[in-house]
């Protein structure tokens, strides 16, 4: 950068990336480095690029992302714990012209909300489900979730999850892929630039699918909970690659959109 000043580069015509206005200016309530924030941002970028922000209704869960409606500058409704797919069902059926999505953690979607998730997916509701799987109950202090890996430590499995005593982790994404009501089921992550780009494409596809009126598009984002895992954000992303991805492999599981 020999003979050009920063002021010459920092001109409006050279702007290539800034936070979308569909995220409010409130500071996110998430811990430093948490994938919830990244996922919020790319959902909002997709809505902006599709120009459907005025036609979209999001459902916030219970969990760390309970306040998602404070950050996503669109119409939102907050559901009782685990009930987001039921609420989304009602909203989409009453307002079929709207794009409707849920945003749910693994405790919300795969524990208390298992029934709602499975039945909405089996009925083939025409909604998008975004599933943030960090293998733990982040909000309440890092308790074991159905998604916690075998041997993984949590505040309620301090010696690691013993599957004989505590049962096996639940792969909700593989499970819903078996149901006739899902048309697109994929697992992604948001910890590197290339993964963020892939996840954004998947979320875009999920929202585009809603125009087909054919069923649920389900996007799992394997994410970190560095506070619950008791690691730094960068360590947690590495741990996620080494431990979460072998058990929760990334990629499309079902694409049935034709």
């Amino acid at each position: 950068m020999a003979n050009i000043t920063k002021e010459e580069i920092r001109k409006p015509e050279n702007l290539v990336y800034k936070k979308t206005d569909l995220l409010t200016d409130k500071a996110l309530s998430y811990c430093p480095g948490c994938g919830h924030g990244t996922t919020h941002r790319i959902i909002m970028e997709v809505l902006e690029e599709m120009d459907i922000q005025d036609k979209t209704i999001g459902i916030a869960p219970v969990g760390c992302s309970v306040l998602a409606y404070d950050f996503m500058n669109i119409d939102m409704q907050q559901a009782a714990h685990g009930r987001a797919p039921a609420l989304a069902t009602a909203i989409k059926r009453l307002m079929p012209e709207k794009f409707v999505f849920t945003y749910q953690g693994d405790g919300d979607l795969a524990a208390i909300g298992t029934a709602e998730t499975i039945h909405a997916c089996n009925r083939g509701e025409n909604i998008v489900i975004i599933f943030i799987n960090n293998g733990i109950y982040g909000m309440t202090g890092g308790q074991m979730a159905p998604t916690t890996l075998p041997g993984m430590k949590s505040s309620t499995s301090p010696y690691g999850r013993d599957t004989h005593l505590m049962g096996n982790p639940l792969k909700m994404t593989e499970l819903v892929a078996q149901l006739p009501g899902t048309i697109y089921v994929t697992r992604q992550s948001v910890h590197t630039p290339s993964n963020v780009r892939k996840t954004k494409k998947a979320i875009r596809k999920a929202f585009e699918n809603q125009k087909l009126n054919k069923g649920v598009s389900f996007v799992e984002v394997v994410s970190n909970c560095n506070s619950g895992w008791k690691m730094t954000p960068v360590q947690s992303n590495k741990w996620m690659e080494e431990n979460m991805f072998p058990f929760y492999p990334l990629g499309d599981i079902k694409v049935n959109t034709d």
Partner: peptide, 26 residues
């Protein structure tokens, strides 16, 4: 340092969306 190429990688992974990126061809 002054080695930025404006590739946006940092902004894309920032969970809090606090990075703005500029890029210019010379």
């Amino acid at each position: 340092n002054d080695d930025c190429t404006g590739c946006m990688n940092c902004a894309i992974v920032c969970p809090d969306g606090v990075i703005t990126v500029y890029r210019k061809k010379i």
